[in-house]
Simulated assay, not measured.
Amino acid sequence: MRRTIPDLPEDLWRHIHSLMPMRGAARAACLSRAFLQFWRCYPKLTLTKYALGSELKGNTSRRINCIIRNHSGVGVKILRLGAYEISRRYFDSWLQFAVRNSIRDLEIVNCAFRPTTEVLGPFRSLANLLLHYVHITSDELECLLSNSHALEKLDLFYCNEIRFLKIPCELQQLSCLSIEACRRL
């Protein structure tokens, strides 16, 4: 006897797929054309060495770049990036991917982040920003914050290049600021 997938509406399948952990959603996409379409709109991309585990043998930047290229960018609400040896040219394109797609949550861990207005443009929908073990200067952080008008929560942890913190007056929504172990601040 052959099992078949129930005939459910596409939006319900898309919702079910979005609730799956990222690794399971990616594996389902490898098995089914329908799930491949859903993968291209998967809302929570966690692209860290720990999340991807054994898949990250070799060049981390190239692997993560391949995953981002295979995603349409539509529907991404959360983007988590973290790896020790991220190439600068990849990182800038990943951030433009985030800006282009109205990202709400951005988490950057264990890398250097050198934002400029020319590269980034505005983060119109960014509500939560988490920077852990990130090399970013005070001026670079100020540039990022001044282009993130919807920011509600800022979390800085071990960002030791930050010497001072200027919160732009445009950040009317900012209600939670967490700073820990930023030794030079």
Rank of each mutant, 00 (worst) to 15 (best):
F123Q: 12
Y84T: 06
R114T: 11
H135Q: 13
L154C: 00
H149V: 06
R100T: 07
H149M: 10
P115S: 11
L120M: 08
I86A: 10
Q96P: 01
Q96H: 07
V119Y: 00
V119F: 02
F123V: 08
L120P: 00
E140P: 02
N128T: 15
V99I: 15
V109C: 14
A127G: 11
E118F: 02
H135A: 15
S93T: 14
T117F: 06
T116D: 10
P115E: 07
V119R: 08
I108R: 03
A127I: 05
C111P: 01
D92E: 14
C143N: 05
L129H: 06
D139W: 04
D92S: 14
I103A: 03
I108D: 11
L130R: 13
C143I: 14
L141G: 04
N147A: 07
S148F: 02
I103W: 09
S138G: 05
A83L: 02
E142F: 09
L130N: 14
H135I: 06
A112G: 15
L154Y: 03
F97N: 04
F97R: 10
L95H: 01
L81Y: 03
E85Y: 12
V134K: 13
S138T: 11
Q96Y: 01
L129K: 05
V119D: 10
L145M: 13
I108H: 13
V134N: 12
A98D: 05
E142A: 03
N147E: 06
P122S: 15
G121V: 06
K153C: 08
H135G: 09
L106S: 13
S102A: 07
R104M: 09
A112K: 15
K153N: 03
A150I: 02
T116F: 08
L131Q: 12
R100S: 13
E142I: 01
E107V: 12
G82R: 04
D92I: 08
G82I: 03
P122L: 10
T116E: 11
I136P: 10
L106P: 10
E140K: 01
D92Q: 11
R124F: 14
L144V: 07
R88S: 07
L131V: 14
C111M: 10
L129N: 06
I136S: 09
N110D: 14
W94S: 03
S148V: 04
L129I: 10
C143F: 03
S138D: 04
L126A: 10
F97C: 04
A83W: 00
R124H: 13
E140G: 04
L120Q: 08
A112T: 14
C143Q: 12
I108G: 13
S125R: 06
L126C: 03
A112L: 09
L130F: 08
P115R: 11
Q96C: 11
S87V: 00
H135Y: 05
N128S: 15
E107G: 11
N128K: 12
T137G: 08
V134L: 11
E152V: 09
R100I: 01
W94N: 11
L151G: 01
N147C: 12
C143T: 14
R114N: 13
S87G: 00
A127P: 02
F123S: 12
T137S: 15
I108W: 09
L81C: 05
L95Q: 04
E142W: 02
S125I: 01
L144G: 02
L130Q: 11
N147W: 07
I136N: 10
S87N: 03
R89P: 01
A83M: 07
L129C: 14
L154R: 02
N128I: 14
